[in-house]
C-alpha cells in the first residue's frame, strides 16, 4: 500500500513540477506534514479497503490557494494529468533513503484509478482561501 501511495504522490509531483505537493500524514518528527498547507496541493490517503488481490485506498486531493482562479487552474492541471490514463506502474522509492541513494525501481505491479471520476468540489472555503477537493479511489495490487 505504501508503494502505491508513494507512486501516486510522485505522479502528481513529478509531472506537475510547478505545483507544491504537500503530503498529509501523521509524523511527529515532521509536524509540518500533519496539517494542511496553503498554496499547495495537499494529498491525504484515508480509508483503506484491503483485500487479498486488488485493494483500494481513498485519496483526498485538496487544492488550497489564496486565489480561487489559481486553485481552479491547478485542479484542472491535476484533472488533465489523471485523465491521460487510469493506470501507472507502481514504483518502490525506498532506495531514495539509502546511502548512497538508489533510484526508484518498478515493483512489477500497477496502480489504477477511474479517470472519469476526477471531480473537484469546493469545501469549507472562507474569505481568505479557496479549497477544492477531489476524492479519488486508488486501486493497487497486493501480489
Amino acid at each position: 500500500m505504501i508503494q502505491a501511495q508513494d507512486t501516486f504522490l510522485h505522479i502528481i509531483a513529478d509531472n506537475l513540477p510547478s505545483l507544491t505537493v504537500h503530503p498529509l500524514r501523521t509524523d511527529h518528527a515532521h509536524p509540518e506534514n500533519e496539517s494542511l498547507q496553503m498554496n499547495a496541493v495537499n494529498i491525504e490517503f484515508t480509508i483503506a479497503d484491503l483485500r487479498v488481490q486488488v485493494s483500494q485506498v481513498y485519496t483526498s486531493i485538496d487544492v488550497i490557494n489564496d486565489d480561487e482562479q489559481t486553485a481552479r487552474t491547478q485542479a484542472l492541471q491535476i484533472a488533465q494529468l489523471l485523465q491521460q490514463g487510469g493506470v501507472a506502474p507502481e514504483m518502490d522509492y525506498s532506495g531514495l533513503a539509502a546511502t548512497p541513494p538508489t533510484p526508484a525501481a518498478p515493483t512489477g505491479r500497477n496502480i489504477f484509478w477511474n479517470p472519469n471520476a476526477v471531480r473537484f468540489r469546493p469545501v469549507n472555503s472562507g474569505d481568505s482561501y479557496f479549497r477544492f477537493n477531489c476524492t479519488l479511489v486508488l486501486n493497487f495490487n497486493n501480489s
Binding site: 505504501i2 508513494d6 504522490l9 503530503p23 515532521h30 522509492y93 531514495l96 533513503a97 546511502t99 541513494p101
Partner: peptide
C-alpha cells in the same frame, strides 16, 4: 528542532533525521 537531510521528503523516506 528536528532536521532531516537527504532521502525523499515527499514519501517520508528521509536519509537522516536529527534532533
Amino acid at each position: 528542532l528536528t532536521t532531516s537531510t537527504g532521502g525523499d521528503a515527499l514519501t517520508g523516506r528521509y536519509g537522516s533525521v536529527t534532533t
